[in-house]
Write a protein that binds this DNA or RNA. Structure first.
Length: 336
DNA sequence: AAGGTACACAACCGCTCTTGA
DNA sequence: TTCAAGAGCGGTTGTGTACCT
């Protein structure tokens, strides 16, 4: 291709636009439409290159542009879409009426990326950072500092921290375990038709090990709404998984460390009650997303008001993605 | 009050993709 | 099929402003 840039002619103005220039551009486009951007500056009487005019119009002057702060719902939508699309700002912008790709890109770089990093997630992969354990003690201490000051003695809190750190380590280990097992096993586990507590030969030991780990969580934090009975020992059934995902995790604000998406929760009407009691962050399993699915994702995260269910989006062909429920976005722990 | 620093956001740059001759 | 113009996209930079020392 190799084409010289449109703006390399000398004498054309660069830099910030003045209100006068804005008025000229808006007046011209309202009257004539933009037509050929390259020809526009000359016709409108602007000493700018066509590209600069186009950018100014599309990113700033267009009448349908929504300005002002991003809402929590918009944040959630951006996070969900970014988890699937990556830095496809224009594609993300197409699901946020009135927002430009440039605006979303800037907002991501200045706010959301930092927020994810502070939560211990890689902003590109949306997965827990592998070095999370290096900062785990600090994170735990910070997160619970206020609670410590308000409610607990030092000794009591130290014990709780220790137990929860241990649980976190186990949780991470469990996650790796499921990653190792791979999607086939995961889907077997999650498939209701396999709820007869069976797994392929050779996996039973690992499964049993995982269950033991999970069972140990129930003893860590009796106060975190673990009123339901512990699951039976043996293989993980779909019922067990439901139970575990709704009741077991002691961290009310810690995301499910789901990695490979075939291991997905499939909430039912009945589940919703227990979720209210135990607000465990939920998974989003995006399909091999076509635009309609992405649109659904955006709509779902916008229209569902309940913070616990806000990100309960599932598709026929789950892939891998963590969603970002409003519970994080609203959590003072992650405000900065 | 002055200088330094960090942050937010508008704008630019350079590349790729699309389209039409 | 080739080539050039037009348009779009994502990454980066520049600038204004708020905050801190």
């Amino acid at each position: 291709m190799g084409r010289s840039p449109c703006c390399d002619e000398s004498g054309l103005k660069k830099g910030p636009w003045t209100t006068e220039e804005d008025e000229i551009l808006v007046r011209y486009i309202k009257k004539h439409g933009h037509g050929s951007w390259r020809a526009l500056p000359k016709l409108a009487g602007l000493n700018r290159c066509g590209k600069s005019c186009r950018l100014r119009w599309t990113n700033y002057l267009r009448p349908d542009i929504k300005r002002g702060k991003f809402s929590t719902e918009e944040e959630s939508t951006i996070l969900n879409l970014h988890a699937v699309l990556g830095n496809k700002w224009s594609a993300i912008a197409s699901h946020l009426p009135g927002r430009t790709d440039n605006e979303i890109k800037n907002y991501w770089n200045t706010h959301l990326k930092k927020k994810l990093i502070s939560m211990g997630f890689d902003p590109m992969t949306h997965r827990p950072r592998t070095d999370i354990f290096s900062s785990l003690p600090q994170l735990m201490v910070l997160a619970r500092l206020k609670e410590l000051m308000d409610h607990h003695s030092l000794e009591e809190h130290a014990m709780r921290l220790q137990l929860q750190a241990e649980a976190m380590a186990k949780l991470q280990y469990l996650q790796r375990l499921f990653e190792t097992l791979g999607p086939t096993t995961s889907s077997l586990i999650m498939d209701p038709s396999t709820s007869n507590n069976s797994l392929p030969n050779g996996l039973a030991d690992i499964d049993h090990q995982a269950l033991k780990l999970l069972s140990s969580f129930s003893q860590l934090d009796q106060t975190s709404s673990c009123n339901a009975p512990a699951p039976n020992s043996g293989s993980l059934s779909a019922t067990d998984i439901d139970y575990l995902s709704n009741n077991y995790f002691p961290f009310s604000h810690f995301p499910d460390l789901q990695n490979d998406g075939d291991f997905q929760t499939s909430p039912t009407e009945d589940d919703s009650n227990s979720m209210v009691q135990a607000p465990v962050p939920q998974l989003t399993a995006f399909g091999q997303a076509g635009d309609s699915q992405l649109a659904n994702a955006a709509v779902a995260s916008k229209t569902n008001g309940d913070s616990c269910n806000n990100s309960l989006i599932s598709y026929d062909e789950p892939s891998c993605s963590i969603s970002w429920p409003d519970i994080f976005l609203n959590d003072p722990m992650f405000q900065f």
